[in-house]
Design a protein around this nucleic acid. Structure first.
Lengths: 371, 371
DNA sequence: AGCGGTCAGGTAAGCGCTTTCCTACAAGCC
DNA sequence: GGCTTGTAGGAAAGCGCTTACCTGACCGCT
């Protein structure tokens, strides 16, 4: 990955995204006639070795005259080196693989920003894969990334409560590590190696304490899928904090749905239908909270006068909805950069786990419980 | 791209994103000892050729016994083929490259969704590059993608008013096409080949007519960078519609800023400071419109009673802000899928240009001009 | 003149895979 | 038995590049 991508230092934050569709690419042999290094060498009247040296700025010296001839040939033929051949010949691993649920989800977009920052600083290629919350696809992507010879794999996003899957995934990751690959996880419990953990449980506790402080007794929880550890961690923290204050959260006041806007609206509707007297809706992520707000608006329920709404994550959008969302902030960008730093630093032998704290951001969507 | 990525048909919408940092990756030679095809062959007691045939499900028949031995060896060694070597050996182009301004921008996220849908259907790898609106980086990425041997390059997003750049870019694209690569653009004028064009001008006209219908006379425009053709196209349409109704838009009522939320807030502030009497703010994209709404809320200006706000694009978020945004919808997902279809279909000789219509979505942020 | 020491540049051996072509063997026929 | 035919499997030639190693020219030295 050298030569052609000139002057990288000019663009410290440049980045590229590759979207890879896994389906078997039975591409045709399109387009012959791409100029190769030998073509350049022939045209310049030198050996391929010399051409390669000029093009890569190798340490081996080349006379000014030959250098110029080569560069002229490169320009004339519009030569661009074949990246696959280079990678193969150098047999080194330049890229880093990342598996997230969905990059277009702001939660992961922020994490990705952090990952990218560090990766770019270190001149690394980043390959990001969307699993769309499908465990099997995660397994597939681990293999795909292995095949792409990435130097490290970073798994971001919630893990799954599924022992079989966890064992399988761990097996694959361990095999990968055995061949010199590095692994880091963000907010998942599966892997026993390096990890960056947002304090989901602690964030849940913050939420619970705030609910108590505001005097809410009738609380409904809009939760993500129960197979996700993120959901259960946040819920556990919330319950613990409520328990401190002698309150409890019965299971029928927790509704599980998709971790997105529509899931949030759906779960909120179900909660309100079952118990119209709720004074607070705690959504376990901001997307769901926004869905909750939308539903409440549709039903003309005043927020926060009748019902307070809480989110989780503090996505950029949280401040732009009306009323602005009270939420638990996680340092997403930092989570990304820390994880990448761990993955790229072979460092310590033992697994390193960094925990990052949550923080409550109070905005307009929450208020004291009405009486 | 075969074998290991099993059962792709099970996951019709799977996809992966690669984020590529361009900086020169001077990666170390990490991790030796990865199992190769020869290792598998040796362990199975067959030739590499046979192993390859089994693993790829080649058409050439292999006895059941050998096949099993190979598969067992694959499993035991946790073998994953080296994707670069495969690509090199097959010397075919499987992936499609995409250059956008920024995938985490909802506008491009939607387009990408469309691109991805078609790419996945055709079993193509997709590589997406963020240019962050830097023309030079676009040029770099064209080369990078060429080096990655992509079958097609799709350029999405606004073009630039910069003749030098356009010439340079066209040169590179033409060179790429000469070697059998295919090019399609989305919403850009630069390239003379296949293109999908959103009707930015027509959308601007819709906006202008709506403003007139509502009786607005004092209109401020919150515009993106003036070097972007998207900005000027939309503005041209808007001006044309206003002219139809005998109104004109003086240049001092147009403020140019970044095409994002903060740019929108900034431009709106400048407009209102200069002319407190404005009754409508037309933002040339939704992000800017949301920034405008935020600013107006800060200043306690009632929307739409005192000032109406209009957006452009109809990003998913437009319906979740308060008041919900009146905006011009572009069929973003469809633009993506059409473009990919064009790029993958060698089809007609002449350049094909598809124009997709804009549509006005009326929501709460707009109302009649106050008197 | 003869020697070793530089140094620019070329030669060729891979990197890990695919695929063409060839061999060897078994089957089927007169 | 000798012949053709069919077929499973192997040998080997790349794909486009990098790089360790070799060559030969040229220098300065005894």
């Amino acid at each position: 990955m050298t030569c052609v991508y000139r002057a990288p230092e000019k663009h410290p934050h440049c980045g590229t995204v590759w979207l890879v569709a896994t389906a078997a690419a039975d591409a045709t042999r399109e387009g012959a006639g791409v100029a190769t290094l030998s073509d350049v060498a022939r045209r310049a009247g030198v050996s391929p070795a010399t051409a390669s040296r000029v093009i890569n700025g190798s340490s081996k010296p080349v006379t000014e005259e030959l250098r110029e001839r080569v560069l002229r040939a490169v320009a004339e033929l519009q030569y661009v080196p074949n990246a696959h051949a280079q990678l193969l010949a150098r047999s080194h691993r330049g890229a880093v693989g990342v598996i997230v649920h969905d990059v277009s989800d702001p939660y992961f977009a922020e994490i990705t920003r952090g990952l990218q920052r560090v990766a770019t600083d270190q001149g690394r290629l980043l390959m990001i894969c969307n699993s769309y919350r499908d465990p099997e696809r995660e397994l597939e992507y681990v293999e795909l990334l292995r095949g792409q010879q990435v130097a490290a794999i970073i798994l971001a996003g919630s893990g799954y409560h599924d022992a079989d899957f966890t064992r399988l995934l761990n097996g694959k990751l361990t095999a990968y590590e055995a061949t010199g690959g590095r692994v880091a996880v963000i907010g998942r419990h599966e892997h026993s190696g390096d990890a960056v953990m947002p304090d989901n449980r602690g964030g849940g506790e913050l939420l619970g304490r705030e609910l108590c402080r505001l005097g809410h007794e009738h609380i409904g929880v809009v939760a993500g899928p129960r197979v996700l550890t993120t959901t259960t961690d946040r819920l556990t923290g919330l319950r613990a904090a409520l328990a401190e204050h002698g309150r409890e959260l019965p299971e029928h006041r927790v509704r599980y749905a998709n971790f997105d806007r529509d899931g949030g609206a759906e779960a909120t509707a179900a909660l309100l239908d079952a118990e119209p007297g709720l004074t607070a809706i705690a959504a376990l992520n901001d997307s769901m909270a926004i869905g909750a707000l939308a539903l409440l608006r549709d039903r003309a329920v005043p927020v926060p006068q009748r019902v307070s709404v809480f989110g989780f994550d503090d996505m950029p959008m949280a401040r732009d909805v009306t009323p602005a969302l009270t939420t638990v902030r996680l340092p997403l960008v930092e989570m990304g950069s820390r994880a990448m730093a761990l993955a790229l630093d072979p460092g310590a032998a033992g697994p390193r786990v960094e925990s990052l704290p949550a923080e409550l951001i109070f905005r307009d969507s929450a208020g004291p419980a009405p009486r």
